[in-house]
Amino acid sequence: MGNQRGPATFLQRLQNRFYAIPAVVQWWAGHFVRRARSSPDGPISFTRLTKPLAACSVALITTGGVHLTSQPPFDMHDPDGDASAREIPGDVALSELTITHDYYNHSSADRDLNVIFPLDHFRELAQRGVLGRVARRHFGLMGHIEGVHLRRLQEQTAPDIAAKLRADGVDFAFLTPA
């Protein structure tokens, strides 16, 4: 992958190593929840699959900061994050993708993008007939979104992605975090 940026500072790298420890992640998640900033109200929607997997079109969505090297990177200067999304074509070579995301250690995903964005694996499953096909478009976002950007994600970016998935005839979406 070209155009790689490492974490911005020594402190950021140190922090990313700390947050790579699973017990620390669980503690952080609990702390985040107790501050109760992101829980939407209302019941969780639930839609059942209506076709066998072998007839389904699947779209991948990741909040791990994945985008095409030719697209603008996510904004790492705004402390509240970047709520925009990047469209990733279904026939892209993984070598055309990169990760911009300073808030986690993505060295494993830099070596093998399937760790976070397993498009190769899903194409393989489609070829083997386990799944129907991979969708025309997939989506890369950045997690770590707060403040005003959270509202933009909820009111603009996410509904826009949902509308594109519907337009593309996607039967289900597979989501991966950072």
Binding site: S38, P40, I44, S45, F46, T47, R48, L49, I61, T63, L141, L150, L153, Q154, T157, A158, P159, I161, A162, A163, L165, R166, V170, D171, F172, A173, L175
Partner: peptide
């Protein structure tokens, strides 16, 4: 949040 929005649009 994204998963919930997609699911609400009728896509599992």
């Amino acid at each position: 949040l994204i998963a919930r929005e997609i699911e609400a649009a009728g896509i599992p």
